[in-house]
Nucleic acid binder design. Structure first.
Lengths: 226, 226
DNA sequence: TTAAATATAATAGTAATACTATCAAAAATA
DNA sequence: TATTTTTGATAGTATTACTATTATATTTAA
């Protein structure tokens, strides 16, 4: 079964909606590929234009600058993960199972999606890990926050926090634990790949080990006595 | 009592040792101030030179580029925190107390240091929070890792992991928990300041609340049954 | 179907960034 | 005092991050 997923992202992120033209979609697709391959710092609209191919000026008609393009990509990813979580939690009643499912969905393992998505998901997953923090670790954070650029991330955190509350209504830090879970899932994945001395995972680089660690951490916190 | 702290950082980080000249020290001091004030992305060696004042070319004789300058600053900070932890744990025998002390030291609260330090510590703390991840979230991570640029961070994580092992010798993920603790302490602080919906702290913005959350998380994980 | 509106390509240009090079003056050191 | 090292002053280059203009192609609306 193939279902479809699409989101309407914050209009202030772009000058011209990339979803609404062929070229716009190519900018997104090639943008994902390029950020994945050479990293955000090395990306320029000139290189991106050459890859599509189109002209630099044309890309500037879609996105003001590469930072907004990055936020666009990462926002898309958060919305996608939120959707996945909502979908997969639908048939679960037990809060513990839900949390385990969330952790499973946060840590990627080539789980071929049952959703038809144009974007290269695995590349986007890596982008959200390696570049995602850069969307808000910048001097523009407060301004961007006012423009609601981080809403998809906040929605995801709230979604997870609500399940934590369901599991333990007395737990005091559901949102902090949710944001920590999301960030930690990314960092431990990155460390496993690049800085193994910062974690305890085997050479197998099996994401299942990350999930075990995260389950231990999350349930440990939620079950802790006050 | 005033004690002194100084470290010898990886020689490959600089072309000329900034500790060994007045101008070098000014580059570091002004660099901290400027990254703190305008952020890493906005920093240029030209602006930095104007602030000191000296010439752009002179700064290039000390540091190859601003990324290495950033790593230099952040490495210095990790080494400093490690030193603080070693010093303050000296008179503690109980592992639980040690862990609480570590958390206390990781979360800043204007605790005037008893160590004479030339650098502006509070600014450096913010830099390590807002810019620290950028030292390794880059395409050069593997190369930089081979050059041992992340050794101070790894040493800190190992130091904390050893205390976790002391507290619970059976715990499976001491290093992962240590790196998660360090990262989480930073992110929750940043969220408290800029994105409060991602955490559960009051408007007081009291770092003590972060410490409580972190203690809950760490002891929860460490006390969890296998 | 044709006219009008819109999007894109092609080209050019600017200010700032991220450097490198040269050489003379100043400062440190032997 | 002579020698070495460091810094300042200046210049220059390639790339980045944009903006502007105009002609052409494509889409849409009458």
């Amino acid at each position: 079964m193939q279902l479809n997923f699409s989101v309407k992202l914050n209009e202030k992120l772009y000058l011209r909606d990339p979803e609404r033209s062929d070229l716009g979609k190519q900018i997104i697709t090639a943008g994902i590929k390029m950020v994945y391959e050479i990293g955000y710092e090395q990306l320029t609209f000139k290189k991106l234009a050459a890859a599509i191919p189109t002209t630099e000026a044309t890309i500037y008609r879609y996105f003001e600058n590469k930072h907004k393009l990055l936020i666009y990509l990462v926002d898309w990813y958060w919305a996608y993960i939120s959707f996945q979580i909502i979908f997969h939690l639908n048939n679960l009643t037990n809060a513990e199972d839900k949390i385990k499912k969330i952790i499973d969905l946060l840590v990627w393992e080539d789980n071929a999606s049952e959703f038809a998505v144009d974007l290269d998901q695995k590349a986007l997953y890596y982008i959200s890990i390696a570049e995602g923090n850069k969307t808000y670790l910048s001097k523009d954070v407060d301004e961007n926050n006012r423009e609601m650029f981080y809403k998809p991330y906040k929605d995801l955190v709230q979604l997870i926090a609500d399940i934590f509350k369901e599991y333990n209504p007395d737990y005091k830090y559901p949102r902090s634990l949710a944001s920590s879970l999301v960030e930690t899932s990314h960092f431990q994945y990155y460390f496993m790949q690049h800085l193994p001395r910062l974690c305890d995972f085997s050479d197998q680089k099996d994401p299942k080990e990350i999930e075990e660690f995260l389950e231990n951490m999350v349930f440990g916190a939620l079950n802790q006595q006050a």
